[in-house]
Every structure is written in C-alpha cells, then in structure tokens.
Design a protein around this nucleic acid. Structure first.
Lengths: 333, 333
DNA sequence: GCTGGCAATCGGTATCATCGAGTGCCAGCG
DNA sequence: CGCTGGCACTCGATGATACCGATTGCCAGC
C-alpha cells in the first residue's frame, strides 16, 4: 500500500495528466499539490512510484504519465467518491427525464445522447431483455398468402414481432383461428418459456401456432441485445492517432462486442474498467464506466467509453445519476 | 465544353488523384494516359483546365488536383457509365439478399453494412415511410390503469406502436371494446388518413378511440424518418485532419440531416452530389452517391458518403445494384 | 500547334545548433 | 534519517540552413 504522501503525489499526477495530456513534472506537483515539499522530494517519490508500476516515463528528461495501475489506484481512492453532479448538469438530467415520454427506444437513444453530452465520452445504453416479461397480447396478421406476422405485446411495453414464412398457403380464417387460439392460451405466460397450447383440432392451424410459438421463444433469447450508442463522434477528438480512432469506432459498431463489454464489466462488479482490464484489445487506451439500471423485468446497463485519461469522477457521477433516474422512470410506468 | 484531349487529360488527372491522393504531374499523365503527347503539351492543357476551374494548384511546383467542378465533369463523362460490379462483389450482394430474411429493420441495417463494405464509404439506408401503407390490424393493449399501447400492423409488414397516456383510468372491458371498434372500422384504410369511426355510444371508449386514431395519424407523419448508418468508422481513415473526421461523424449522427441530404439529392435528381453541391457545409470534402429503392408502398433511399476523391464508378455501381436488389426483395414479399 | 530545353519555384528532408524543461544524483543541512 | 538545493546530464522541440528533386512556366525552334 502507498503511504499518504505517495498517494497524494500519484493523485496529483493523474489529475494533472487528465487535464493537460502532458507528462507531469515534479515541479508542478510540488507547486500545485497541497503538500509542502520540494520538487526533489517529489522526484524521489515519483521514482519509487515508477518502480512499483504506477507511473511511466517516456524518456529521461520528461515528466511522468500514469499507468493503468496508476489510474486504478486513483479511481479506487477518490477523495470525492461518487461526487454529485454539478447543479447545471443535474438540471439537464432532470429536464431530460421530465420531457422524455413515449417509446422506450427513443428514450434510450436520447439517454445515450444525454450521457455523451454530460461526459464528453461515447455513451452506451443497452435495452432491457425480454426474458422475464410476460405476454400481454399475441396476434397473428396475414401479410401475404404464405407470410404471417406474429406480433406480441409484452408486460414491459415492448413489442416483439416475427415474420413467419409458411410452408403452404393458409386462409384468413385459419390465421384468425390460430391468432385467437394463441391469444387465449398464451396471454399472461412468460415470453421465454410459455406453457403448452392444446390442439385446435386442425393440423394447419396447429402448425401455424407451433411456428409462432417457436419464433416468439427464439426472439426472447437470440434477439441480439439491442444497444444504443451516443456521441461516437467524440472519439475522434479524444485520440491523436487516427488509427486508434478508427479502431475504437469500429468496435462501437459491433453491437455484440459492446454488449459483452458491458455485461462483463457488470458481472465482475467493476463499475470502472481501465485500459487493458476489459479484454478488448483495441480499447487498450480506453476506460469504461458502467452502471446497471432496473426496468422491473430485467436488468440492463448504461455506460460510457472514453480515453483512459477521462474525467472519472464526472463520468462516474453522470452514469450513476442517469442509471438511477432511468430506473425510476421505467419502473413507475 | 472541353475538347476530347482536355477531357482525356482531366479524366486522367482525376483518376490518378483518386488513386494516389497526390497532386498529379503533367509527366504522369503524358506517360500513363493513352494520349501520345509530351508533358509540355499536357502542361499547357492543364493550365487551361485550371483557368476554367477544373483543376487547382497547391503551389507552383506541384501537380494538379481536381476541383469539385473537375469531379463533376468526371462523373458526368464516365467512359464506363454505370459499370457492372466485379463478379466477386456481385456474388456478395446476391448472397446477402439470399441469406437475408426476417425483419425489415435488420435487413436494412445489414444492407448498410454491405454497402459500406463494397464501397469503403459510410453507407446510409433510409427506411420507407408508412404514409402510403394501409392498416392490416389495429389493437389496443392495456399496460397499466392509465396506459394503453396502440399497436398497428401495416400492409408493408411494419409495426407501428404508440403509447397512449390516458386522462382517467379505464377498465379492461372498455379497452377491449375500443380495440375491437378500431379493428372493425380502420382495417384496410390508409394509416395516414383513415376514415371516420362512428361512435360506440360510450364517451370513455370514444375518447380512447379518438386518442388512438390521433396517435396513429401522427406516427405516419412525424415519425422521424429512420435511417441506418453503416461503416461510419471508415470515415476515420479517409481524412487526414482529425477535425474533419469529427465533423463528418457528427453529421452522420444527426438523422434528420442525413435524411434531408438523401431526400434533397433525390429530389434534384442527382445521383451524385459532389463537395459543396449538397448544402451541408461540414461535408464540403465529401461526395454522396444515392439511389432510390421501391418498397411498393413508398420510396426510400440508399446511398454512400465518402471523400470527394472516392471511387465513383465503384460506388455508383454498388449503390445501383443494391438498390435494385433491395427493391426486388421488398416487393416480392 | 507541338516539343525539348531550361530556369525558377517550392515543399520535403536532412543536418545542425540551440534552448529549456526535466530528471537523477549527491553532498549538505536540520 | 529524511529533505533540500545545486548541478550536470538528457532529450525532445524549435528553428535556421542547405539541399534535393519534382514540377511548372516559358520560350525558342521544329
């Protein structure tokens, strides 16, 4: 463990590096930091911190830069732990959720944008899964002679739709029969694992019913976890190397990578993942700050992605507040 | 108008500049181009082309770069006008549409990715509007004591949903009555402008019916034109200035800008917009190649966005083929 | 009207010296 | 014993300089 002075110096280095993106010199720390010691002393301490892996040194005559380990210590020992949001920002969040209404999709999309604005990072918002939801309504609608759309409304307000391509042509009457049969027997049961449905006494209708049930059950599981990305363009200003920008943006376009990134972070109970800590190689220069939110039916996640030298207190506070208000909003409805 | 030799020189300059991104020298044109003239002659012609605004000159001892006007001439006088796609790429397109099935949203999303892969540009795919679609099914589902979800299935297979927040609590029976009433009277009419519905004799039910009709009509018009962006990350490699990358990406995040960009291009019947031709200032260094596609109900657009020095024949061919196959796919279903 | 020849232009690169912000180390001080 | 001031040393950044080479513009001649 680091003694208090080393910790203070490390904190000062990280703080200044986050602000300036320049290697931090001992002189600056001695002056800016509130510890009353000479630059020489700071230098000695810095040398130790470097030996222990908290800092690095681009070249001899340069200041220090934090390593991932350095950032990790910093976020684990913040003096202002969750730190509330600045009033102006708090107000923005309140306004956002007061104004927001209507479809879940739009809400989540806009929330991503909000979070990105608040943190100057790219924002990621996953949509809650529907595994735990129950069916409020099931309906089949004929679109063509062999194409039927299965539409289900879930208890959480989501609408699941699946196109069924049938093997043979069916009459409108049979579609209606199957639809009514499904509605009668499935309403109220969970989407993921709904109860058996008795036969209607008609093979064709039964076939359609079975196919619809299969499609809905599939939708519950295999549907690619939806994730909304906001403010990806900010990544263009956060990195020097255009090549890094490209890689990071490319990752953000791969939904499943983003989703598993968020899920992993949450599974390991890490609200903050720094640099190499999350396993995604191209994001080695990035940190991720996440928070779960609750919808009543199933858990989901909000988070931001930024450079390792992002403003952690700000990001943590913003993510926390947004996830909290989002939970509130979704549970009251 | 340009005489044939000037045109050939201009073409050669544009072609080489697109490949190399370097100012093109008279010597290269004389050598590479199939015209049997000396560099000096080419120089003289180039000087004229510059005076007429087709080329520019970074500095005295540098080669020439095409202006927007130069590119415009190039695309308007392509020797290989629409030029079919390379076989390998053609195959990719076929595979894509053969494999693609299921929801329209996923199809369009994946098509954006395909188009981006084919052209190395960012791809844009708008979803068809629902103004012309008719209602196949309308249904109300109670989600809470004062919250009702209106779900409509359209003739084009789309599902429109709107949350209704009621002024007073309603019974399940009334919701069912309103739902049945709507289904009975609206099925078959156009979404945008559906016929009047007679009273049910119950004020509360009538209110709900009216509110649902209003919400659906609104959805037809005000629903923000959905647009799918694919491969935005490619823009990171296409520009030198990180600041340009940022601006372009930021534009791509603003759906309504993208939508109006596409619509404007199409309205003016310009399949290719070069540099400043489309009015969006931050995209001055970009070109847009679009093509309409047909869904049967209403027109929509696919397009790509790339640097002005993009591969126009390739982009035009890819966009054309994809829009054509997309139309086919959507009209057969 | 085309061409070869030639001076002039100008960015890019390499070289070099210089500057200054930093560090590392050491001797001395409290 | 820990802290400090002093000092030599390091090394990137900056700027001046020269030079090279690619390229143009122009002109005289074919």
């Amino acid at each position: 463990m680091l003694d208090e002075r080393k910790a203070a110096i490390l904190r000062a280095v990280v703080k200044e590096y986050i602000e300036t993106a320049q290697p931090v010199a001992s002189g600056h720390v001695a002056r800016a930091g509130q510890l009353a010691v000479s630059p020489a002393t700071v230098r000695n301490e810095m040398a130790v911190l470097e030996r222990e892996g908290y800092l690095v040194h681009p070249h001899t005559s340069a200041g220090r830069i934090p390593t991932d380990k350095g950032y990790r210590f910093y976020v684990d020992h913040l003096r202002t732990p969750p730190g509330p949001l600045a009033p102006a920002q708090k107000r923005r969040v309140e306004e956002h959720f007061a104004r927001a209404h209507g479809e879940l999709e739009r809400l989540l999309h806009d929330t991503g944008r909000l979070l990105s604005d608040l943190t100057d990072c790219a924002a990621m918002v996953t949509a809650p899964g529907h595994v735990a939801a129950t069916l409020r309504s099931v309906q089949l609608v004929a679109l063509g002679p062999r194409v039927v759309l299965a539409v289900a409304v879930l208890s959480d307000g989501a609408v699941v739709k699946e196109t069924l391509e049938l093997d043979l042509e069916v009459t409108d009457a049979r579609v209606a029969a199957a639809s009514a049969h499904l509605a009668a027997h499935l309403t109220g049961s969970p989407l993921a694992n709904h109860s058996d449905v008795p036969s209607t006494g008609d093979d064709v209708t039964d076939g359609m019913v079975a196919q619809a049930r299969r499609a809905l059950a599939d939708a519950a599981h295999t549907e690619p976890e939806q994730v909304y990305i906001g403010g990806a363009s900010r990544m263009a200003s956060t990195f020097e190397a255009i090549h890094t920008v490209r890689e990071v943006l490319s990752i953000l376009e791969q939904q499943y990578v983003v989703v598993s990134l968020l899920q992993d972070a949450l599974r390991h109970d890490k609200l903050v993942s720094i640099g190499a800590e999350h396993g995604v190689e191209p994001l080695a220069e990035c940190s991720v700050v996440v928070a779960p939110y609750e919808t009543g039916t199933s858990p989901a996640t909000v988070g931001v992605l930024g450079p390792t030298r992002m403003n952690y207190p700000q990001a943590m506070a913003a993510v926390a507040v947004v996830s909290e208000r989002l939970s509130q909003r979704l549970q009251e409805g």
